[in-house]
Design a protein around this nucleic acid. Structure first.
Length: 563
RNA sequence: UGGGCCGUCGCCAAGCGGUAAGGCACUGGGUUUUGAUCCCAGCAUUCGCAGGUUCGAAUCCUGCCGGCCCAGCCA
């Protein structure tokens, strides 16, 4: 993967870090962190951030911590904590012994809050949420000072101590930074630092605390305590950087990480907002966080994406500060490249049509030895049974060719059976309704591993021996939305753009015999059809395969043009 | 009309004053028992627009235009 790493251009964050190192900052050390909030599953956008943070650490021989930003116990839980760790690990990254929680720092955070209060930099405010909003002003008008802004240090200290002790109700008071209510940056208008939350059980600290610190206060301090050098986050936090810096400038931590913002990934035909993904799961629009249609890491994994393909994708999309809208083709290309190289080939018939070779003896069985990969001998061979009765795909037969470019089987025509013989269609058998139910063919015995004499047979189709076929369910997935940017159209709800055909399940598909012992997670290329992986719910008695992605299909393009 | 940020090919993205990398997509052609893969070729006289500085500007300056983000006791 990414064999041209040497000549790959470096992105702006690498430039910044290079300069910092050149100037001797942080003794040349680089420490990053990936800071998810455990309130949902990780998605492809997080994958970009994970690859960036862990990738930077690897490149500079530094470290990347995994830190749960768990300051809002109301929305967070252990299930997500576990799933996130599994996903990061699966992607191929290792935080070693550096698994942290912002809640590890609650006591220290509290101490720094006392320090701010003592220095007149923070105060207890009794305004309720609505009043606070009114006092904040608007984007174009300055806010007003809270009537509680001038409380004495002693009173603030007393009140904050009692806040922690549980003397006050939820929402009755908050701790606020004392900055500037007239700042053009809304984040600097005396932001809330601590709020009161009774009766929630925090997944790490249980009922130890009834006050919880806010992100803007917690994040810079957590970074500093961990010795993070470069705190990478997305663009929407750009306005928060002055506050990030303010917090660190006004307390006595001897470390001041540099926050750098990059643009988040926008993948077409999907959504990556946790709120919306949660909605899809909770409303049963998909079957769970790991539904193969979900852009979650768990969903992509179940769909058959490999860690390497996701890392490669992250690499290809780059890191910048500009708004972007990445085409699905980018992701698909990354997984095709990986699977083309590594997935063993197999044959599977999705829409079976019976073929009887009238000149092939009824009791004859040939075991044909075929390669698992056409370009890679080291992947070995397998045997496939060849018999008188076979299945081919209905789409590979037409009574008359629709045009001169059609090179599959037609009535009276010839076609190559992949890895086997050339056959000719002699007779088409239909039922009373006129549906084609069977083909009577003859096979040319001289064409096993050899071209037919005196004529050219252009078409090659795949097949499966009827008697040996493994019946399976094949799940064909398509994009979850029909609109490239489902959440960009603000007048409409994103759910209006759900693709009703995002899952098409085919039962009674026939797979070649060797697929009988496939194991959950295995990936194959079903020749001429696409890449499929064995589903998590697969069993020997109920085989289920998910289509990861189709093969590139230039025939489909030709057909489309003619239509 | 407050503040912050962004505008280079259909999409992503290099470029940092010396005359437009690369990837995806697309279009031709070759090889092929997968209409796959692979190979070869093509694909921005132009960098949101308009001025200016300069021998020379995507890169510097000025002014416009367009887009994104911010008024949670969410992150």
């Amino acid at each position: 993967m990414s064999s041209h790493e040497e000549n790959k251009p470096r992105h702006f964050i690498q430039h910044i870090i290079d300069e910092d190192i050149q100037q001797g900052k942080n003794d040349g050390k680089v420490v990053t962190r990936f800071p998810p909030e455990p309130n949902g599953f990780l998605h492809i956008g997080h994958a970009k951030s994970i690859c960036l943070n862990f990738g930077i650490a690897q490149e500079y021989q530094g470290q990347c911590n995994l830190r749960f930003d768990d300051t809002n116990p109301h929305k967070e839980n252990l299930e997500f904590v576990k799933a996130i760790q599994e996903d990061v690990r699966w992607l191929g990254f290792d935080w070693e012994d550096r698994l942290y929680y912002a809640s590890d720092y609650f006591e220290q955070l509290y101490g720094f809050a006392i320090e701010l209060i003592k220095n007149g930099k923070a105060y207890i405010c009794d305004l309720n949420a609505e009043q606070t909003r009114e006092y904040r002003g608007t984007l174009t008008e300055p806010g007003k000072d809270s009537p509680y802004r001038e409380r004495s240090v002693e009173e603030n200290l007393d009140l904050f101590t009692r806040m922690r002790a549980g003397d006050f109700e939820d929402g009755s008071r908050v701790l606020r930074a004392r900055i500037d209510m007239a700042s053009p940056n809304m984040n600097m208008r005396d932001p809330t630092l601590y709020r009161i939350r009774h009766g929630v059980i925090h997944h790490q600290t249980g009922e130890e605390w009834c006050i919880y610190p806010m992100y803007d206060y917690t994040h810079p301090i957590s970074d500093a305590l961990e010795g993070v050098t470069h705190s990478l986050c997305t663009l929407e936090f750009e306005d928060h950087r002055p506050l990030y810096d303010w917090v660190l400038d006004n307390i006595s931590v001897g470390c001041h990480p540099r926050q750098i913002e990059f643009s988040r990934l926008n993948l077409q035909y999907t959504v990556t907002s946790k709120r919306k993904l949660t909605q899809l799961v909770e409303e049963g629009i998909v079957e769970g966080w790991d539904d193969p249609r979900m852009p979650t890491i768990a969903g992509l994994r179940r769909r058959g994406f490999t860690p390497a393909s996701i890392r490669e994708f992250s690499d290809r999309i780059g890191v910048t500060k500009s708004e972007n809208s990445v085409e699905m083709g980018m992701l698909e290309s990354a997984i095709r490249d990986d699977l083309n190289e590594h997935a063993p080939r197999r044959m599977a018939v999705l829409h079976p049509l019976k073929v009887v070779l009238e000149n092939y003896p009824e009791d004859k069985l040939e075991e044909l030895t075929v390669p698992n990969h056409p370009q890679n001998e080291s992947m070995g061979t397998r045997t496939i049974p060849f018999t008188r009765e076979l299945y081919i795909d209905r789409n590979d037969f037409m009574e008359v060719a629709p045009n001169k470019k059609f090179k599959r089987l037609v009535s009276g025509g010839e076609v190559r059976l992949r890895n086997a013989y050339v056959i000719r269609c002699d007779q088409v058998i239909k039922n009373e309704q006129g549906d084609i139910i069977e083909l009577r063919c003859s096979c040319d015995e001289a064409t096993l591993g050899a071209n037919p004499e005196g004529r050219k047979v252009k078409g090659v189709i795949h097949w499966v021996s009827a008697a040996h076929a493994v019946e399976a369910e094949l799940r064909l997935y398509d994009r979850l939305f029909v609109e490239p940017q489902p959440d960009a159209i603000k007048e409409r709800d994103f759910k209006e753009f759900i693709n009703p055909d995002s899952l098409r399940s085919l039962t009674q598909c026939y797979l070649e015999r060797s697929l009988a012992d496939a194991r959950a997670g295995d990936s194959f290329q079903f020749e001429r059809e696409g890449y499929f992986c064995v589903d998590a719910d697969h069993s020997h008695n109920k085989p289920i395969f998910n289509r990861t992605v189709t093969l590139r299909d230039s025939w489909a393009k030709i057909e489309q043009k003619q239509a």
